[in-house]
Amino acid sequence: MSGTLQKQRVVLSTVSSDSHTWNLVFLQLLLEEQGYEVVNLGACVPDGVLIEAVRLHRPDSVVISSVNGHGHIDGARLIAALRADADPRVAGVPVMIGGKLGIRGADDADLAGELVAAGFDAVFSEGADPGELGRTLARFTPAGALGPAAPAAARTASARTAPATARSATARTASASARTAATRTAPADPFTAEEVAA
Rank of each mutant, 00 (worst) to 15 (best):
Asp110Lys: 04
Gly119His: 13
Ala112Tyr: 03
Gly92Pro: 07
Ala157Lys: 02
Gly144His: 12
Ala145Leu: 04
Arg77Cys: 14
Asp121Gln: 15
Ala164Tyr: 05
Ala174Asn: 01
Ala145Ser: 15
Lys100Asp: 01
Ala118Glu: 13
Ala176Arg: 07
Gly69His: 14
Arg135Ala: 13
Leu137Asp: 00
Ala122Trp: 03
Asp108Asn: 07
Arg184Glu: 06
Ala138Arg: 14
Pro130Arg: 12
Ala186Met: 04
Ala152Trp: 10
Ser177Arg: 05
His72Phe: 15
Thr165Glu: 10
Ala149Lys: 06
Ala145Cys: 13
Ala76Gly: 12
Ala150Met: 07
Ala174Gly: 02
Ala81Pro: 05
Thr180His: 00
Leu78Trp: 14
Pro94Arg: 06
Phe124Ala: 03
Val123Leu: 10
Ser125Pro: 12
Pro130Thr: 12
Gly147Cys: 07
Thr136Glu: 10
Pro94Ala: 03
Arg179Ile: 08
Arg104Trp: 07
Leu137Val: 12
Val93Leu: 04
His70Thr: 15
Ala112Leu: 14
Thr180Asn: 01
Leu133Arg: 00
Ser158Pro: 00
Ala81Tyr: 10
Asp85Phe: 09
Ser175Val: 01
Asp129Gln: 10
Pro130Gly: 10
Ala81Asp: 15
Glu114Phe: 11
Leu146Glu: 12
Ile73Ser: 11
Arg184Ala: 05
Ala159Thr: 09
Thr161Met: 03
Val123Asn: 06
Gly92Tyr: 06
Val95Thr: 14
Lys100Cys: 05
Leu146Ser: 13
His70Pro: 03
Ala112Ser: 09
Ala150Asn: 04
Ala106Val: 08
Pro151Met: 08
Arg83Trp: 14
Glu126Cys: 11
Ala152Pro: 00
Gly119Thr: 13
Ala153Gly: 07
Ile103Gln: 08
Ala176Ser: 08
Leu101Lys: 00
Leu115Tyr: 08
Gly113Ile: 06
Ala159Phe: 13
Val63Trp: 02
Arg184Gln: 09
Leu137Glu: 01
Arg155Phe: 05
Val123His: 07
Phe120His: 06
Ala117Phe: 07
Val95Ala: 11
Ala157Glu: 09
Asp107Cys: 05
Ala86Thr: 12
Gly92Lys: 02
Thr173Gln: 03
Pro151Tyr: 13
Glu114Gly: 07
Ala178Ile: 04
Pro88Gly: 03
Ala182Glu: 08
Thr156Val: 04
Phe120Asp: 01
Leu115Glu: 03
Asp107Asn: 06
Pro130Met: 11
Ala149Asp: 12
Val90Ser: 00
Asp107Gly: 02
Ala164Met: 01
Thr185Phe: 10
Val90Ile: 12
Thr180Cys: 02
Pro88Cys: 05
Thr170Gly: 00
Ala112Cys: 09
Ala106Ile: 06
Thr136Gly: 03
Val67Ala: 12
Leu115Val: 05
Ala162Pro: 00
Leu101Val: 10
